[in-house]
Structures are given as C-alpha cells and as structure tokens.
Amino acid sequence: MDQTTLVLALLPILIIQLALMIFALVDLIKNPNPNGPKWMWAVLIVVINIIGPILYFVIGRRNY
C-alpha cells in the first residue's frame, strides 16, 4: 500500500478520535459531578482511542 492510501485511510480515524477526545475533555472539565473521579476519566479519554470518550459520554458524564 502506498503512502497516499495510508494517509487517506488514517486521516478520518484521526479526525474522529481527536474530535471525540476534545469534546469529552471539554465536557469533563465543565462537569461538576461526573460519575467517578475526574482524573480517571481524563486518563481513559486520552489513553483509550475512541472508546474512551464514548465510555465517558455513556457512563461517566451523568446529566448535569
């Protein structure tokens, strides 16, 4: 597989990952009462690609 194809393949994933991470982190900072410690969620969101932010939205954020 040539270089261009690889870039084309990875770019959308990268964009989604970044977008989700930023959304999740911004929300976490503003969240007064997340379901679990904040630092733990920050680590999960940053370390686990894509799944981390989604876990935060589904389980971690609670409605505030």
Partner: peptide, 21 residues
Amino acid sequence: RNYKIYWVPAIFILLGITEPV
C-alpha cells in the same frame, strides 16, 4: 447537549471502518 448527536454516529462510523480495515 448530552452529545448523543456526536457519539452515536461516531460508533457507527467506527463499526463501518472496522470491517474493511
């Protein structure tokens, strides 16, 4: 405001990508 409009499509995109990759 609960971000459903972002994360639900994100999961489906992920599922869509996984199979060919």
